[in-house]
Design a protein around this nucleic acid. Structure first.
Lengths: 231, 231
DNA sequence: CAGTGGTCTAGACCACAGC
DNA sequence: CTGTGGTCTAGACCACTGA
């Protein structure tokens, strides 16, 4: 008697059949009960395999309609956005942080629109630099909604960055992130040590939690930075 | 009699306790059996909730050691890298494609090193433009390993791009992707219609399948492009 | 060695949505 | 209306790994 069929076996076999063309894009797979009999497994085991295939963007499922191979496989990656301190220390470099500027006030219009802030909301605005081995690595331009996180009004960001503080205050959040390229303006060029107009990699991220806007941040990386991921 | 506790209920409750500080970062959660009793659910239900929490980067689990709240929550996103045709058409714009250049030969050294190609391997090199409403949207610089995908030697890429062809030939793959900013060189500036030295968003992606290198591609986007995602 | 998570089974009820 | 996936249960065996 051989060991029982695992959900991994089933997943692999189904992927093989899809790759081989036996189950073409758009075609319908047998239902769970039939597959369970075919593989000699319980329906729950087949179900787990199928859920992972959905998760991987390989098939789509609908009640009654059944399971279909996606006609265009969904190209998706799991991107880990590193916390800058950890990223630098993992490279074996020395991490240092500096707060350039901090103030509290009414948000500018573009920010109010972007975060859907109300007229009475105040924000704390911070600009910081993160260094690796003494060289500028990342500029952080951070806005925190004080209505959502009132403790940020008095928090001390002179020794460590607002990211690390926020992640403790708000462990989960809904996030919208965007990646782009930008040209260094005069101030950025000076702070990060590159020429004016040099291409810099930029991440913008706004987070909210339970429909309340928390923070917006713009991260500018040193010249030549790459954000890399495998999947 | 109320309806049974769902894995979602359990997940939500655990997240609430973590957010409230009841289960602090680094602390150990009760084991599955205890949680199952506490929630009045089967162990399998608790297990599913916990597996999702692992997946979301909120907890870590090890046999015997138990389940611990991650001390630094893992910031990860699910990034959907759009197929350029779909991306353009979803914006309601007209998609057009042009092949600029195609040839077959030995790979340059940097590519051989990057993809771990063997001395006898040949590659097909293609450069293409993707247009949105007549404007250059993306430049594609594509290298295909002909040993892995011999059909690419004769394939016709004059009407549609190699991405769409490859995705049909190789539905799954292991991928390494990187995002960065680059300055437009003379040729890129001309092709994409921007100034030389302008900052451009770049994606580089190399894919393999079953330890065999398939392709390397460098995508350069029009000025001002943003890759955006929610999670 | 023993506690913990990893997984499978067989059966059940249910919700949704195509037919 | 009925087929299909979505989920829960109770129980079992096993594999890893920390104490």
């Amino acid at each position: 008697m051989s060991s029982p069929t695992t959900f991994r076996d089933i997943k692999t076999d189904i992927m093989r059949r899809i790759a081989s063309g036996e189950w073409a894009p758009g075609s319908r797979l047998p239902n769970e009960l039939d597959l369970a009999q075919k593989f000699g497994a319980a329906r729950a085991t087949v179900n787990r395999a199928m859920r992972e295939l959905v998760d991987d963007g390989i098939v789509e499922r609908k009640r009654k309609a059944g399971t279909h191979v996606r006609s265009v496989p969904l190209r998706q990656i799991r991107l880990h956005i590193p916390v800058v301190r950890a990223e630098i220390e993992e490279q074996g470099a020395d991490y240092r942080y500096a707060l350039l500027h901090s103030n509290i006030g009414r948000p500018p219009d573009w920010l109010r629109a972007r975060l859907s802030l109300r007229p009475q909301d105040e924000v704390r605005h911070l600009t910081c630099i993160h260094f690796a081995d003494g060289n500028p690595y990342q500029l952080e331009d951070r806005w925190i909604n004080l209505t959502a996180t009132p403790l940020a009004r008095e928090a001390d960001f002179s020794q460590s960055g607002p990211s690390e503080w926020l992640i403790r205050q708000v462990p989960f959040s809904d996030v919208e992130v965007s990646f782009s390229a930008t040209a260094a303006d005069t101030e950025q060029a000076e702070n990060i040590g590159c020429g004016k107009g040099d291409p810099l990699f930029r991440i913008e991220r706004q987070t909210s939690w339970q429909h309340q806007p928390i923070t917006f941040v713009r991260l500018i990386y040193q010249r030549g930075y790459r954000l890399t991921s495998r999947y």
